[in-house]
C-alpha cells in the first residue's frame, strides 16, 4: 500500500517537473511548478521530514510560487513593440523564436544524451551503494542532552551545525541586497514598464488579508516556540510572517518599494547581527558558537527570535522589492 502511494507520488513528481519544463505556456509552467512544490512537501512528509515539508510548502511552493507568478507578467510575451502594447497573438507563447539551426539541434541532442546518461549513471550508483561506515543519527542522539533543545533537527540546525545556518542567513540577506541593488538601481523619472495584465492573476480581497495577517502572526509565534521540541522553528515561522506581508501587499494594504528606510534596514540586519553577536560573545568562554550548556536553550531561542523577524522581513522584502520596483 505504502509502496503504491510512493510510486504514484514519484510519478506525479516527475510528471509535474517534466511538464513545468516543457509546456509551451509559461503561466501553466509556473502553476505546474507550484504543484511540484506541494508534491515535494508530501514527499518530505513520507520521508519522516516534517520540518522540510513545512518549509517546502511555505517557501518552496508558497513564496517561490508568489515570486514566480508576480514575475510572470513582466517576463511573459515578446519585448514590447510600442509602449503599453503587447502583440496579442504572442502573449501566451513565450519563447517563440524560429526553428533552431543545425548546430543548435546537435548541441541540444548532446545535452539530452548527457542528461540521460547522468540520470542512468546516478541511478546505477545509488543502487550499488553499500551501507555507510558512520552513523550520524546515533551521534546526534547521543549529544541531544547537551544541545539545549529537544528536537533533533533544530539541534543540528542551530547547535551542531549552527555555523552553516549563520552563513545561510547571510546568503538570504545577500540575495535581498542583490535584489535591492538591481531593482532599485533604476534612474529616477523613468516610467515603469508593467504590462497591464501583469498582476491580474494575483488579487486578494482586503477582508481576507485583514483576517489572515494577524492569524499568520500567531502561527509564526507558535512555530517559533514549537521549534525547540517539535517540527518548526525560525525559518518556517519567518516564512509565515513573510506570507502575511505578501498577502497584505496583494490586497493593496502594504506598499512595495525597493529603497528601505533605516528602521527597516536595521530590522533586516537584526537577525544576522544577533547571531553574529552571540557567536562572538560565547568565544570568551570557548570557541565560535560554543554555547555554555546551561545557556544553550536560551541562546538558541534568542537567535531564533531574531532570525524569525529578519527572515520574515527578508523574504517579504524579496517579494515587495521586486513587485514594488516595477510599479513605482
Amino acid at each position: 500500500m505504502n509502496l503504491a502511494f510512493d510510486l504514484l507520488l514519484i510519478a506525479a513528481l516527475l510528471w509535474s517537473a517534466g511538464r513545468a519544463l516543457t509546456t509551451p505556456d509559461l503561466f501553466r509552467a509556473v502553476v505546474l511548478f507550484i504543484v511540484f512544490g506541494l508534491l515535494m512537501a508530501l514527499a518530505w512528509a513520507r520521508l519522516d521530514a516534517p520540518d522540510i515539508a513545512l518549509a517546502e510548502a511555505a517557501i518552496g511552493a508558497g513564496l517561490t510560487g508568489a515570486l514566480l507568478l508576480d514575475a510572470l507578467g513582466h517576463l511573459r510575451g515578446p519585448v514590447r513593440r510600442k509602449s503599453g502594447l503587447i502583440a496579442p497573438s504572442t502573449v501566451m507563447s513565450s519563447e517563440g523564436a524560429g526553428p533552431p539551426a543545425f548546430p543548435t539541434y546537435f548541441l541540444n541532442g548532446l545535452a539530452i544524451v548527457l542528461a540521460v546518461a547522468l540520470g542512468l549513471a546516478l541511478a546505477g550508483a545509488l543502487l550499488l551503494l553499500p551501507e555507510p561506515a558512520i552513523s550520524l543519527p546515533r551521534e546526534v542522539a547521543a549529544a541531544m542532552d547537551a544541545s539545549g533543545v529537544a528536537h533533533p533537527v533544530t539541534a543540528v540546525l542551530l547547535n551542531f551545525r549552527g555555523y552553516d545556518t549563520l552563513l545561510e542567513v547571510a546568503v538570504l540577506w545577500l540575495a535581498l541586497l542583490g535584489v535591492l541593488a538591481v531593482a532599485g538601481g533604476r534612474a529616477p523619472g523613468r516610467a515603469p514598464v508593467t504590462p497591464r495584465s501583469a498582476r491580474a492573476s494575483l488579487k486578494v480581497p482586503r477582508l481576507l488579508a485583514r483576517v489572515l495577517a494577524p492569524l499568520a502572526l500567531l502561527v509564526a509565534g507558535y512555530l517559533l516556540w514549537a521549534g525547540a521540541h517539535q517540527p518548526g522553528g525560525a525559518f518556517q515561522a519567518g516564512a509565515v510572517l513573510a506570507a502575511a506581508a505578501v498577502l497584505l501587499n496583494l490586497a493593496g494594504l502594504l506598499p512595495g518599494g525597493a529603497t528601505p528606510r533605516w528602521v527597516l534596514r536595521a530590522g533586516l540586519g537584526f537577525g544576522l547581527l544577533v547571531f553574529l553577536a552571540v557567536a562572538a560573545a560565547v568565544m570568551g568562554q570557548g570557541v565560535l558558537l560554543q554555547y555554555p550548556p546551561a545557556w544553550a536553550g536560551a541562546l538558541i531561542m534568542l537567535i531564533e527570535t531574531g532570525l524569525t523577524l529578519s527572515i520574515g522581513l527578508t523574504l517579504a522584502g524579496l517579494f515587495l522589492a521586486l513587485s514594488g520596483a516595477s510599479r513605482q
Binding site: 517557501i59 540546525l157 545561510e168
Partner: peptide, 9 residues
C-alpha cells in the same frame, strides 16, 4: 532546510 533557503535566495 539550509538548501531550501539558499534556493529561494
Amino acid at each position: 532546510l539550509t538548501g531550501i533557503v539558499v534556493s529561494i535566495a
